[in-house]
Design a protein around this nucleic acid. Structure first.
Lengths: 225, 225
DNA sequence: CGTTCAATTGATACGGATCAATGCAAGTGG
DNA sequence: CCACTTGCATTGATCCGTATCAATTGAACG
């Protein structure tokens, strides 16, 4: 049985546009699935069969060139919607970066449900427009920024909040993961991190931890360096 | 008075999802506007006031870094929808690459019209999803391909049709324009074009003309070079 | 304490940017 | 009709940033 009222992402996921009753009707067509770290929910170029909401964990949207170089398009956190509704071919892979829990539907079921629920489609439209804005922003980063700017921008993007003071947090992925997002190599990312550390702008407690000491300077590096 | 029945993009623009009657009701809230080559319909970071359809010409969606390096996100051809509905801030500029004709609406008018017309919102959703797919494809190109692959991919993308034989066409933009799209410099684009010409893969009649002589080899270059 | 995997550091090569000059075609005016 | 300008495109020389290859360090774990 489903219990959307208890869902931890009820207020973030697209379901918030539906009444609890309608949400549970939708949920009746889907199921929850646990994903282990590294599991692939959808392969690029496969038929697009599934769509869904992320409940826990972090997923990665990515694609690879024929030579095997990978590019990450974005990360999906709890509350995010993943998959490609209204299209038969997946344009990217969806992989779990951490153990994750998703609430998934057959694409065809979701499509017809959405066609009957205007508010849901509208919510999806708003999200897709926001995703597009965000993707374009990162396009600029890939095409026009140098490594130091990319890394600084990435850290600022990952940092929670907007506060002035020092902020500490955990990165959602390894150095390789950062490299795939920024279109760099693992070594270049590492070097940029040590430069920032030597300059006293950040500290790096543990492999995934980051402490932003001087946010203003970090923003200046992101602007031009 | 409006006459959407005669509109040359009636069957391509989002309006195709509306009855002719509804289309003209929408048109009553908008107007046609001519844009001269180089005119800017919308500046990045300005308040998002306008949305609309491209009727004639080619527009460019782009943004610039603080240092003035420009990145193009995409081109809008006749039938395309431009602008950012349901959001108050424009994330990119919209510039006419050629003389153009657009059919525009105040964003607020369009938003409320769309909220009342499910089929229009659905059409917009499908387009936005397709735009997102396309943008991600180009993200990969920016992040992971080398100059020769970028240029080859660009030419293939611009070429009409999928035929085997030689195809001739005009590029929609100058070398600088290509550079802005591919995240390269004008010189690098030029050098790659001459390499392709010397290899007998393409010919370049006039500044904007391209003749693809050997499409297979060009595709091979795009895959890996 | 060794094994393993990720991150760091170093040395070198290469691709593309940058700076600078030349070429080429389409106007413009004498 | 020919010199002169103007705006791209092309070509060349050099420099810088990042990739690549290779070795080392460091942390997590059995």
């Amino acid at each position: 049985m489903v219990d959307c009222a208890q869902c931890p992402v009820r207020e973030q996921a697209i379901c918030r546009s539906l009444s609890l009753e309608e949400t549970e009707r939708l949920a009746g067509q889907g199921r929850k699935q646990r994903l282990e770290r590294g599991a692939v929910l959808q392969w690029e170029d496969e038929e697009s069969l599934l769509v869904g909401n992320v409940i826990e964990g972090v997923l990665k949207l990515s694609s690879s060139t024929s030579e095997g170089r990978e590019q990450t398009f974005g990360l999906a956190r709890p509350g995010a919607f993943v998959g490609r509704p209204f299209g038969r071919r997946a344009t990217h892979s969806v992989t779990a970066l951490s153990d994750a829990l998703v609430c998934i539907f057959r694409r065809s079921d979701f499509d017809s449900f959405a066609r009957g629920h205007t508010e849901l489609e509208h919510e999806l439209l708003e999200r897709t427009l926001a995703d597009l804005d965000h993707t374009r922003k990162w396009m600029m980063l890939l095409g026009r920024m140098k490594a130091s700017q990319k890394v600084a921008t990435f850290l600022l993007e990952m940092a929670p909040g907007e506060e002035e003071g020092a902020v500490q947090f955990e990165l959602p992925c390894s150095r390789q993961g950062i490299a795939d997002i920024l279109g760099l190599t693992i070594e270049t990312v590492s070097r940029q991190m040590t430069e920032l550390r030597n300059a006293g702008i950040i500290e790096t407690p543990g492999h995934r931890g980051v402490l932003i000491v001087d946010r203003d300077t970090l923003e200046a590096v992101a602007e031009a360096d």
